[in-house]
Design a protein around this nucleic acid. Sequence first.
DNA 1: CTTGAATCTGACATCAGTGTCAGGTTCTAG
DNA 2: CTAGAACCTGACACTGATGTCAGATTCAAG
Lengths: 119, 119
Amino acid sequence: MRIGELAGRTNVSERSLRYYETQGLLAADRTPGGHRDYPEAAVDRVVRIQELYAAGLHSDRIRQLLPCMRDQDGGPSATATPRLVADLTEERARIDRMIADLKRSRDTLDDVIEAARDT
Amino acid sequence: MRIGELAGRTNVSERSLRYYETQGLLAADRTPGGHRDYPEAAVDRVVRIQELYAAGLHSDRIRQLLPCMRDQDGGPSATATPRLVADLTEERARIDRMIADLKRSRDTLDDVIEAARDT
DNA sequence: CTTGAATCTGACATCAGTGTCAGGTTCTAG
DNA sequence: CTAGAACCTGACACTGATGTCAGATTCAAG
């Protein structure tokens, strides 16, 4: 599929899709004229990439991670090195802290919202 | 207490504390010479502010929110307007989506980490 | 063929909190 | 009183994914 369709289906801008390519996160075939042609699996991949970005991972880390992921077409093409496992474990801990923070903020908002409801 | 101590106790840089003041999030008395003098309650407040920033709220929103929060010394000094409640409800939904995303990313990392463990 | 929509590359802007530096002033222990 | 630590303001840089614009090219339908 072409970039416009992929953007529409993933709700990710064309700009970002091209950026992912420069970062080595998302490959695309090219038509004879140079237009990008994405495989169906690109949809899932883009969604994953977005999730990982949202989790605070940087392009470099995502690039290391992607080949080790299951649920890619053809299964994982690599296994994480010990070094990468250590890094990912740290990222995981960071994500846990983020979740805890977010829950506290959510509770704070709930308090304020509820206090207003009781007015 | 002075800014250095507050920074140390909250693990927030002095730069950020001064920035919070310009944003109207954190007030401080001044010594005759002009140095900031924070009340004890500033520690809690700074922690809250950090959590809310981490949850993706911007300064403007936090400024609206802070006076409505419980657990401030003296209790809440304001109640959220209906307009603010609507905005906060939206923020809350966004935070929920963030948490869901983070959990998915965490699961992804766990998969990769575990796959490496089974090597 | 033609024409309009879609895509291409490259460059520059943005956001918003934070880092950092400079040059000056205040505080406090000795 | 004095030295050094701590603090002050103001300004500029940065980060890194994304928005946006310009000018050129390709694609696909009539």
